[in-house]
Design a protein around this nucleic acid. Sequence first.
DNA 1: CCCCATTATTGCTATATAGCAATAGTATTT
DNA 2: AAATACTATTGCTATATAGCAATAATGGGG
Lengths: 294, 294
Amino acid sequence: MESFEGIVEFVAVAERGGFSSAARQLGCSTSHVSRQVARLEERIGCALLARSTRLVSLTENGSAYYQQCKELVVGLQQANEQVNQQQFNLNGTLRVSAAGGFAEQFVAPVLMVFAQQHPELTVDIDFNSRMVNFVEDGIDFAVRYGELTDSSLIARKLVSRPMMAVASPDYLKQYGEPKHPNHLKNHSCILSNNDHWFFNIDGIQESIKVSGRWRSNNSNAVVEACEQGLGIAYLPKSTFNDAIESDRLVAVLEPFWGKGASSWIVYQNRQFLPLRARLAIDYLIEHISGWGGS
Amino acid sequence: MESFEGIVEFVAVAERGGFSSAARQLGCSTSHVSRQVARLEERIGCALLARSTRLVSLTENGSAYYQQCKELVVGLQQANEQVNQQQFNLNGTLRVSAAGGFAEQFVAPVLMVFAQQHPELTVDIDFNSRMVNFVEDGIDFAVRYGELTDSSLIARKLVSRPMMAVASPDYLKQYGEPKHPNHLKNHSCILSNNDHWFFNIDGIQESIKVSGRWRSNNSNAVVEACEQGLGIAYLPKSTFNDAIESDRLVAVLEPFWGKGASSWIVYQNRQFLPLRARLAIDYLIEHISGWGGS
DNA sequence: CCCCATTATTGCTATATAGCAATAGTATTT
DNA sequence: AAATACTATTGCTATATAGCAATAATGGGG
């Protein structure tokens, strides 16, 4: 297999007319340059330079070879400059995998603003909650909610979302208001992702098993069912902003609300994250973490 | 300064889709390929490959960089092929420095035949006896006569030329024939290169100091002067072939003639002598040494 | 579902290379 | 003419790299 070894040194000697001058230009020792060129000549079985003490000149073969090697060196410089420029340019496609209502409601709008600020970027958000294959799918980062499973990824907390329990006024009029999380076993609860709700009871986070006649993994559907009086709902507070403002739902069990799980940005643990990813992640953290999670 | 390190490995990984396959192609270890690519990424500050266990793909930057590096690798292959082809082709200009009558009389004609056999060669013979600067003047080899001074050169003996002492019949009639080299101090001698002639006396080579009224470093001029009866001449035997055949000159001191000095081909002690030089030198030695020096 | 084969990474050791210093040769300066 | 400075090469040593082996992860086959 071909090797580029000695090419840079040979070109430098040819251009500078000597090993010592070439070594100074390359910032290495004269003996290194001497040996690299000698090895190159040995590898290609041809004298490239004619030498006497204090004098070096190109042979006929060396002249021709130099022209070609010079193009290789220039080509490498251009390749490196271009990859360097690309590295500090904001271009290409930002690919995000987002899951959950929070991503839909808050992350997407913020990314929209970010995209407007960077017209040369394309943003591709795939809303799904499946396990992401970062390498295969070329995903820059994912937004995930709850506990994370893959320890090889880097996770940066976006927000801890405080929870809120609500019910419709009609439901409470008919079934009474629960005064403690333990009372929930006597109530109809509207389930979302799982049937254990975490409450802060005397400073301790306790898991309360709940049940009900309605369940959905869509937070909008949960809110509607609650408004219809189908039971008590317990989701991140922001989910109920509109319903609370219009008095369609009212808060219950307020002293016991948990801090709730976190939303995360997760991405590959790798060097040289593309600039677009780094800036987008930083932008999201800056514009969402700072909200205090409401 | 730019470095080509890792380029070959990176291109191989990109094309084969994995480090192990690339290592097999390159005939090296997987760990070497892994490290070379990692070092390349570190040097250019950019991820070229996205990796998971058992899977490698090019990043956006890596894709662009690969295209350029592929051209570099192809360019290197072409450069090496071309220099290899040149190496085994007989082309270019054979540059020879020749000194002395022997070179003019015998070497030039033989090289002429050699040149006729190789139409793609140009032969450039510079007749002079100054010290050759092989590197500066781009000389392939030189033809020299007598003792050599530069021990760093390679010297291959072309011919040892036996000497001959001659005089014109008129000269001998007038001044008598010398019977021993010691008698030469009483005779007029025609000098060429120096005033000490070497004779074989009782198996020992002895230096006899001679003098005369005529001196020239041109052997043709020496022969003419001798024919005019200006004295005794002592040069390589071949110098006098015509004059002897036509009885214009006769031999003297025959039992004492020395073997004479040698003619040499000298060239740089260097690797990878161009093919044209190697073939020409071999051709000369084959076609001149075999004559036995007459 | 389990086992095996293959992959990529990295700690560690053997090996090749980079640099230092000595050497020889030559050009320039005094 | 002699001394000095600079050059290229090479022996030797310190350092970086190549390869081996261990490790962890994953895909394919039974």
